[in-house]
């Protein structure tokens, strides 16, 4: 499903600021896998996601999705298979456009955007039903401009837009970190609901160790551009936050943003 082989990414090659963000990283995901990613700052988690999405070109290695080598594919073409939810809730939606316009754009992902009308009456009805599945009442405000909504509502919409077309891979980059605890929980619940319903292959970065254990069927811990620990299935479920902390300290990595709960 997702096959990453020997991925290496270096920033500022040959300069004083050279930083090797990813070193010879390999990862395999089967369809339906939900893997949580944890690690200290600078471990390379976001870089990994950005490489999968195509925002960065890689220096070495390959990325294969569903048997197709996408290593050299530009970001906007790759968006057909890879969708993302960013940490900043304002980044996932176009502020000046309406809810239904945003969703229409998401639904056209991968298609040619010609001179056909963006939101036809039929589209409008269909999109309303889709938004209703969020259970947030937003289906009654389809023509409201997105900039009038709260961060949590916008993030929920971004999540919907990212999963509407059932992409091959869903990338979640600390997507609840900027939300208040109550809203964060709601968005995580939605995440679980949608990914389970769709059997969505997902990678989720989180700084919350408890969430990392609770959600998903796989867990990887990164440090210094490498995967230093992996757990799946039962082994993962049996993990405790203390186990993970110990692992961190074993590698000598103090993280100042660890949330203990």
């Amino acid at each position: 499903m997702l096959d990453i082989k020997n991925l290496t990414k270096v920033f500022g090659k040959g300069t004083v600021n050279e930083k090797v963000a990813l070193t010879n990283l390999s990862l395999h995901l089967n369809e339906g896998d939900f893997v949580t990613v944890i690690g200290g700052n600078g471990a390379g988690k976001s870089t990994l996601l950005n490489c999968i999405a195509g925002v960065f070109a890689v220096d070495e290695g390959s990325i294969t999705i569903n048997g197709m080598d996408v290593t050299k594919m530009p970001e906007h073409k790759r968006a057909r298979f890879v969708s993302r939810v960013f940490q900043d809730p304002l980044l996932g939606t176009a502020a000046d456009m309406q809810i239904e316009e945003n969703l229409a754009i998401a639904s056209q992902r991968g298609q040619r955007r010609g001179l056909g009308w963006n939101v036809t009456k039929k589209d409008s009805q269909h999109l309303k039903e889709v938004v209703a599945t969020l259970g947030l009442g937003l289906e009654n405000r389809m023509t409201t401009k997105v900039n009038l909504l709260s961060g949590g509502q916008r993030q929920a919409l971004t999540l919907l837009m990212a999963t509407m077309n059932k992409p091959s891979i869903l990338l979640l980059d600390e997507h609840t970190a900027a939300l208040d605890p109550k809203t964060a929980q709601k968005v995580l619940d939605l995440t679980r609901k949608i990914t389970t319903e769709n059997n969505q292959t997902t990678i989720m970065i989180t700084h919350n160790m408890k969430d990392a254990i609770t959600y998903g069927n796989k867990l990887i811990m990164m440090s210094d551009g490498k995967i230093i620990f992996q757990a799946e299935g039962e082994q993962k479920q049996k993990l405790t936050v203390a186990d993970l902390l110990e692992k961190f300290q074993q590698i000598g990595d103090e993280n100042d943003r660890i949330l203990l709960s």
């Binding site: 906007h76 968006a79 980044l91 176009a94 316009e101 056209q108 955007r113 001179l115 009308w117 963006n118």
Partner: peptide, 19 residues
């Protein structure tokens, strides 16, 4: 669709590319 894609590009470049 094309026009909306242009508006999205101007409104939020990153989101547009991600879509």
């Amino acid at each position: 669709k094309l026009g909306s894609a242009i508006r999205a590009t101007g409104c939020n470049l990153q989101m547009a590319r991600a879509q």
